[in-house]
Write a protein that binds this DNA or RNA. Sequence first.
DNA 1: TTCTAATCTAATGAA
DNA 2: TTCATTAGATTAGT
Lengths: 185, 185
Amino acid sequence: TSQNLQKVSSFVEEKPTHCSFSIESILGLEHKKDGIPAVKPHRPWMNTGNNFGEDTNLYLQDPVISCERPLFHGNNYPMLEERVLKCEKYFSATERLTYKRELSWYRGRRPRTAFTRNQIEVLENVFRVNSYPGIDVREELAHKLDLDEDRIQIWFQNRRAKQKRSHRESQFLMVKNTLTSNLLE
Amino acid sequence: TSQNLQKVSSFVEEKPTHCSFSIESILGLEHKKDGIPAVKPHRPWMNTGNNFGEDTNLYLQDPVISCERPLFHGNNYPMLEERVLKCEKYFSATERLTYKRELSWYRGRRPRTAFTRNQIEVLENVFRVNSYPGIDVREELAHKLDLDEDRIQIWFQNRRAKQKRSHRESQFLMVKNTLTSNLLE
DNA sequence: TTCTAATCTAATGAA
DNA sequence: TTCATTAGATTAGT
């Protein structure tokens, strides 16, 4: 059964066929050893074809899984992670950085964008007035700042999260101060 | 509500003074006057009670009181009212809509469900076989995994979206690679 | 170390 | 239902 399940991949357009499996049989697979999700992460900036075929290393990023340490064994990728972990003990910071980069590369993370001072300034100014720019505003910003619209959207998402975080923190401080001054009276 | 909004208005900080280009041109100013409709969203997981009516000053309560009922993360968020206020003056109907949407979220977005590793594994296994489970399968899953049937349904919706996204992505890359290699020949 | 760009996905509402 | 978008949580680069 496990083999049958693994044959199904996301490359094939699956029809909502009626399932003849019982849930018990599916639930019975809970303790299956390797559960590589046959799903590709969204990597719009990757241009070449080495995304396909045997390069399954790219599909292993999954936060849910990475919460729990040792999920995927028997692939190339966990070897890398082991090496990174060993780094902590035996290797220099520089070497650790190299391995981290290598790990990131295999995982297919977009290189971190370094915004210029001017770009940040404009984005902040717009954010003050409108922290939820629609697609039209984002496109215009992207054109004027010479950035992808995706970067703009992500920037606003993170900026909103930051605002919310700082707001929460200031409220916490307010409560703390109130309690403190009440105690001192 | 308008009284509450006026109370908050004094906390609104000043406008950005300098910008590299016209913000008006970005925001595309439109001044429509329709108010925010008092639509109460469906919140089956909430205690149907007093606090979430249209004209409650929930957002202006004393922080101490608010912190004593940590029902949802966003229960203190007066900034939102500020932005709704600003909406009236500066934003287009479309952009105001997003604020209204946020307001309803703020008023009671369901706390994010953190599925366990085992739940994910079972759901993925079922998904491989049947990505459109009927109500009977969903109910059975809900019972076996100790989740609401609603969560199961939403999970499958999002999972299908994810699959579709990655499928589109691979199709796009496939076409692109074909074109590229044809050009190189 | 802090800050934040990037990622993943549960939740939401509109179509 | 799909679809686009959001919030929230997390990972990871500087």
